[in-house]
Nucleic acid binder design. Structure first.
Length: 217
DNA sequence: AGATTGATGTGCT
DNA sequence: GCACATCAATCTA
């Protein structure tokens, strides 16, 4: 008899059945709403024959010209241009001199917005992730946006990838979280009052349960 | 032109 | 808790 595999935190690593793809329509909506809905979905990467996947457990919304924390706040540049395009594309940017971060673009073309994928619970391809990350500690493989991209082998070459059509980097539907945790965004000084970070409560793969100086005392 | 600041992570104290 | 790695956009002059 087979039972669902348990991970360190006691969270079931549910069977890695290949689910339905997430549609462009579902990504076209209001970004904070989309960020919330992406919790529980799976991020999948197929690279050189190996398939890696992980359940998304932490996201943040960034929204165009009215959000001072967004890269798109001051208009379009070569770096952020993908944010201005149609929904469902990968916005991959380089930050702090050494890390890449992966976002999925949202809202209709012309509205610069995206969801940052901050943390995920590894499901398939753990060996590959561990090799790329240089650690075997599963809890930390995809903990934090920079670690997540490193584990998945994602860098600037994937900027602009259409994640709805792509066969190498895409999203699959998963169980949604009825009552996710909500907080201010991590590492953001501007627009602290916008609580646009969403995470699965109590999940040990989330980067930090309480971000520093959030409105959660 | 030069300085500063990030949507960061790690290792050491 | 703090230094550090070290790039690109933005701010200051």
């Amino acid at each position: 008899m087979t039972r669902p595999r348990q991970t360190e935190g006691g969270w079931p690593a549910h069977a890695a059945s290949h689910g339905k793809r997430i549609t462009r329509e579902s990504l076209r909506g209001y970004t904070p709403q989309v960020a919330r809905k992406l919790l529980g979905a799976r991020l999948v990467r197929v690279d050189g024959g190996t398939r890696m996947s992980a359940t998304i457990v932490e996201t943040e919304a960034y929204r165009g010209s009215h959000d001072p924390a967004s890269h798109a706040y001051r208009g379009e540049t070569a770096r952020n241009s993908v944010m201005f395009g149609p929904p469902g594309h990968a916005y991959v940017y380089f930050t702090m001199g050494l890390h890449y971060c992966l976002n999925v673009t949202t809202e209709p073309e012309g509205v610069a917005a995206a969801v940052l994928l901050r943390a995920a619970q590894p499901l398939e391809g753990l060996e590959e992730m561990a090799r790329r990350r240089g650690t075997r500690e599963v809890r930390r493989l995809c903990k934090g946006p920079g670690n997540l991209t490193r584990a998945f082998g994602i860098d600037g070459r994937l900027n602009g990838e259409d994640m709805v059509e792509s066969t190498t980097l895409f999203l699959e539907q998963g169980p949604s979280d009825p009552s996710p945790g909500v907080s201010a965004r991590v590492g953001v000084t501007a627009a602290r009052s916008r609580r646009w970070r969403f995470y699965i409560r109590g999940n040990p793969f989330v980067s930090e349960e309480r971000p520093p100086r959030a409105q959660n005392p």
